[in-house]
Design a protein around this nucleic acid. Structure first.
Lengths: 381, 381
DNA sequence: CGTCCTGTAGAAAGCGCTTACTAACCGCGC
DNA sequence: GCGCGGTTAGTAAGCGCTTTCTACAGGACG
């Protein structure tokens, strides 16, 4: 510590400016000078003072990544992919090049307030970019506050990328399958260009998944939804109901008692699946299938059903969503919908760094493919 | 952006110094002045310039967290717990208090080089603290470089905490069950105080786990080890062999052909478990139990065994390690060893912030409790 | 009534770096 | 021999904040 640019300069017999230029490589420096400086840097084990250079250059090497829950592999996988694009690349060299970015992963716990707090903190750090992952609360107040923060970030030169989330207010648009909306202005104020967004086809995936169950012959299908008023939850639920409605099956029409009865809202955790499955069974003992908001919930549901001595899939089918790594290893292997988390994260990371062109319309929707495995089968006659 | 302290000062009719003092609350300011300043801050939507204040105050709000693989719940859970102590607390308020810390989660991918790179980057940022999670490579060169980096960090005022890792060179000490070593000086140079460390009782947990299988009557037990030359891998393997040796069972003596034959090294991922189980079966068709380096590997092994038409636990027992959330939902529920990841992370976070006293001897070993579930049973006669 | 605290606020000197702007030097053509 | 572009290096002015030191009230006190 306390070895400064000036020390290096003195040792190399040049001015501080020259050292800075060698290190940043953004100005012609004679070869001999350059190597003299580099040697001094090495001998003194000089490490730049990040804050100082961020202040002087008015840019920082920090990239913020907001996630709901880093302990959840859904976010873990995305975060890992994002970081793989941002952090140090190969392992060939322990030296950290100048201008090397670092990701700050912020755990919001799904709390809108904390999300805003983190955005303020990132603004304070003058982050180079911010990636918001996963769905969000559909509360207009929150969305408004969010839009304001993001606008301020962008005004300050921070690149904003949404990964797995609708472009802001478009989130309240109902369940549009395609998802490719244009920018929608927030309340008052100039919206500026909408942040670039990568969204998942939750609606389409859910519709195909429930369609698969309907094709197998299921008609009494329970749904374990995630927390209410969140975009991801609603898109998946809407897809599910759209499939039911198209087949004229029970629960297809939102708001009807039938639909309410076959839907239980909970969290995205295992316990919600466990409790929710029991509740569904209580409400509708004749259930032949359960669709969960995600794989974790599905696993919890499986546990509950097994305790009730129901065999999967002989007595009851179960399906998840996301295709997290453990889905294929469940017994029986879980039928689910694959979300390209890794691809999405990697692409978001590149977009955040400006290393990839923004998609046309500033929004791209990634596919959600049905993965049929062993946890779903035709209902018993 | 571009609203500076001076702007706020002008608006409030005070000097910049006063505004700084109000914001930092570390100097007496008259109530009336204080509220005038706060109003100005509010009206101007002023946000401190983090780099500038870090430079002037020579401290930063950044805390580095190094993990091997953030997509792995083992690290995800710890990272989440660490952050819960460091990041914004309640959701009562969207305002970010001054001095609010942020965690930078760095994904090393298990690469020693990348670990060093990140440490340099953190040094550059003048991080307030650094938490290194999980085991490490046992290569003396790497350990030396690591010790040097950590010493430099500590010299610069960065607090260093190890979470789930032996205090540096103690890592090469053989499999000491207690783990409470004193500081061991690195090669040359003054060691200074060893970083505070929270370690897991991998050895003891593994020994109890294998002991459980032996008690059930198993004698031909295969072991799916993690990557060679990593502390966690070796401690668990050593514990396993210690239990075997104590019972006089096959494979208890390291280095013997028997021990080698019953051990397969791989990664900590699902595929390694799958491949490894098949390999074990090939080497020893009479296997009655498989112990895996962690739960993820165990799940992969289960998949492979099931494909070979072996029933768990009737035909073959399987055990994991860590007790990750999904272990209890495996079918059958996985017998494993519970590692208090959340508690460890939370405590490490508090230690990093200096909000908790370092344990006596600067090292505390956390218990690893055996969780007997349904995937283990007596072998068939 | 002058002095000495105590409580508040301002002036100003950096923190370590970047980056115009300026200066020196070189070889060149006229 | 002199002025001139082209290189390469140095000078110095900040970047926006913290913090020491100084200044100035207004009581309390002798």
């Amino acid at each position: 510590m306390s070895v400064t640019l000036a020390d290096v300069a003195a040792r190399a017999g040049v001015s501080a400016a020259t050292v800075s230029r060698v290190l940043n490589g953004n100005y012609p420096v004679a070869g001999s000078t350059r190597s003299r400086v580099l040697r001094a840097v090495d001998e003194l084990e000089y490490v730049v003072n990040g804050p100082a250079s961020a202040l002087a250059a008015a840019t920082s090497d920090l990239v913020g990544v907001l996630v709901n829950d880093i302990a959840d592999p859904f976010f873990g996988v995305m975060a890992s992919a994002i970081q793989s694009q941002i952090g140090p690349a190969g392992d060939h060299d322990a030296e950290a090049p100048h201008g090397q970015k670092m990701a700050i992963i912020c755990n919001t716990g799904g709390s809108p307030e904390r999300e805003l707090t983190y955005l303020t903190l990132l603004l304070r750090q003058r982050a180079a970019a911010v990636v918001l992952t996963g769905g969000t609360v559909e509360d207009p107040d929150h969305l408004g506050a969010l839009a304001t923060r993001l606008r301020r970030l962008e005004a300050g030169g921070t690149r904003v990328v949404l990964c797995g989330r609708q472009p802001l207010t478009a989130a309240t648009d109902g369940a549009a399958p395609g998802g490719a909306h244009g920018p929608v202005p927030g309340p008052e104020e100039d919206p500026g260009p909408a942040p670039v967004a990568l969204t998942f086809d939750n609606f389409g995936g859910a519709r195909r998944l429930t369609g698969h169950l309907l094709d197998l012959g299921h008609r009494r299908i329970g749904y374990l939804a995630g927390p209410a008023a969140r975009t991801t939850t609603r898109q998946r639920l809407d897809g599910h109901r759209a499939a039911l409605a198209a087949a004229g099956a029970a629960g297809g029409e939102a708001g009807t008692p039938e639909a309410e009865r076959l839907t239980v809202h909970g969290g995205y955790d295992r316990a919600s699946g466990y409790d929710g499955a029991l509740e569904l069974l209580r409400r509708e003992p004749g259930l032949t299938a359960v669709v969960a908001a995600n794989d974790t919930v599905a696993l919890g549901a499986c546990a509950a059903l097994r305790e009730r001595a129901l065999r999967i899939p002989e007595d009851i089918s179960v399906a998840g969503f996301d295709d997290l790594p453990f889905a294929i290893d469940a017994a029986p292997a879980l039928t689910t919908v694959r979300i390209p988390l890794h691809e999405a994260g990697a692409r978001a990371g590149r977009l955040a760094l400006g290393r990839e062109e923004a998609p046309a319309g500033r929004t791209a929707t990634l596919p959600a493919d049905l993965m049929v495995r062993a946890s779903t089968a035709p209902p018993r006659p």
